[in-house]
Amino acid sequence: MTKINGKRGASDILHSTIAFIFILLLFTFGMWYYIYQQKSGASVWEDYYAKQLTIVMNSARPGDIIVLDVHKATEIAQKASVSFESIFLISDQETCVRLSQGRKTCYSFFNRVDAEIELRTGVPGNVIEIKVLEEKE
């Protein structure tokens, strides 16, 4: 049996217990946050759509109209209460996709063009229509 030398020993045990509890809480919160972020696969799908849009934008020419199926993205965004208008953003040579609150994934494209995005629902799935424009100077 451990012998505790007076008040100092008791205080040491208290401090180490508090430190352990703090580390445990930090760990639990970190793991919970990580799993919460991953459970919908939001980061994976953000990465997928950002890269797909980049490939499209790199080979696009002004005047092109490109339609992409984004049904999966809208499903994930709806579950995460992200408004449909803020899912896809193409500006400043970057394609950004947001499928979770407060986080987004971006990827740069080298082709100097601009684009306007319009989300159309129920055609029969959800799609985005990208109108490729001349770059604004």
Partner: peptide, 8 residues
């Protein structure tokens, strides 16, 4: 290039 995930 790698994709960049951040706040926004």
């Amino acid at each position: 290039q790698f994709s960049r995930r951040g706040l926004g």
